[in-house]
Design a binder for these strands. Structure first.
Ligand code: MN
Ligand code: MN
Ligand code: MN
Ligand code: MN
Lengths: 218, 218
DNA sequence: ATTAATTTTTAGGTTTGTCTAAAAATTTGA
DNA sequence: TCAAATTTTTAGACAAACCTAAAAATTAAT
């Protein structure tokens, strides 16, 4: 009923709505994230509104309806479960899986999704620390902060990233910063807000503010 | 480069060419198997010929080019590997997997295919006994016969099916006929060519000729 | 060897999702 | 506040993959 393309729009609307703190998503924002032109987005919004998957008032941006949110969450659930599979079972790195999951997230079979979930041990978070919604769409919650907001001497655990680009993830790999590692803040530079941290109580590592802003810790 | 739809055409052309013993596949044959009309098939054949994926002389049917065969075999490889995954890892029955594999066979990632193959232990045959081509397209060979052609008193091993419909597979399940089981032919009815067989040296089972014709044994 | 039946192709359209260019609405800001 | 800048929508087209109806080629039958 919902095409590959429609599913992608719904997923992106969901994510941008989250990012905007719940307020409407604009046509141009969507055009950027769908790699299309605003005119194409307008066409699609008309269609999604027709199908009652989004709330759409011309020129006012969109939000998802219950039904649209349900589909979006199902796509996100599949994306993240497949990412767990790719890393845990097939041995991919966390920087290699996104594009493959972009394809797998559209495979249409409830039984498959639920059996995969069970096979993986009902994981709560994906390899980037993103929460995996359950079959009903409920997200596991976890309060986290940006590393850049943590004060000197505190010790925290790395629980996620806010940027998923291979370049960023590979940079973390090179510095041994992995999900679950412990981080003690040794020093914060007055000048450039860069961090010197102690990883797992053993290794001293330099972290630029740009990186610290995109690391989630708890 | 090759769309979902094109891949399906190539795969079906490959399989029908095999069935025809290597000779050309007709437009109507393809229309049946693609669930479309002959006119649509004609359009697609023109396009596939343009891309040098098939050898096409109007009104004379088609065969695959080297390039077309290569793509077809890659799709078949993925289909059968995913079927192994669904049965061996997720616990699906062999009667439930075909439609899911029809989707998964189009996921485009060589690394994924090769890692999946390794994860599964480089299987040679899928859950229906069909051979899985290797990364270069080479099929493992296995000489087999139809059960219906085996003589009384011989003992053979069940190695495949020539029909994949859920109804047929469920019928086999109900009679405990599974891949790898041993079959001793106790009696063949003169009247209707039906078989009475001994399964795994223990159980006596009745098999109609219609079923025996679609069971492959060795 | 013609004619009849069948198969295949072509012609002309539709739907989905995209595009560019132009028009309309909204927002900014002098 | 009202004109300029920006954003969004509409108009008109296009490619992919399908359709129906009609024409052309092949095959089968007298
Ligand atoms: Mn991802
Ligand atoms: Mn992720
Ligand atoms: Mn199958
Ligand atoms: Mn199979």
């Amino acid at each position: 009923m919902t095409s590959f393309t429609e599913e992608n729009y719904l997923k992106i609307i969901y994510m941008l709505t989250e990012q905007n703190g719940g307020s409407e998503v604009s046509t141009n924002e969507l055009a950027e994230h769908t790699q299309t032109k605003a005119a194409s987005v307008s066409d699609m919004l008309r269609k999604l509104a027709e199908k009652n998957l989004i709330n759409y008032r011309k020129y006012q941006g969109v939000t998802l309806t219950k039904e649209g949110q349900h589909i979006a969450l199902s796509v996100i659930r599949k994306h993240r479960l497949w990412e767990v599979f790719l890393v845990e079972k097939l041995g991919f790195g966390w920087d290699e899986i996104h594009d493959i999951a972009e394809q797998l997230e559209h495979i249409d079979s409830k039984e498959l999704t639920e059996k995969l979930d069970k096979f993986l041990g009902n994981p709560q978070f994906d390899p980037h620390g993103d929460p995996i919604p359950d079959a009903k769409g409920k997200m596991p919650s976890m309060s986290s902060h940006k590393l850049s907001e943590i004060a000197v001497d505190q010790t925290v655990v790395m629980v996620g990233v806010t940027v998923h680009s291979p370049a960023f993830l590979q940079h973390l790999d090179k510095n041994n910063i992995t999900l679950g590692c412990s981080i003690r803040i040794q020093e914060v530079s007055e000048f450039d807000k860069s961090f010197t941290i102690i990883l797992n109580n053993t290794q001293s590592v330099f972290v630029s503010n740009e990186v610290a802003k995109n690391l989630l810790v708890k």
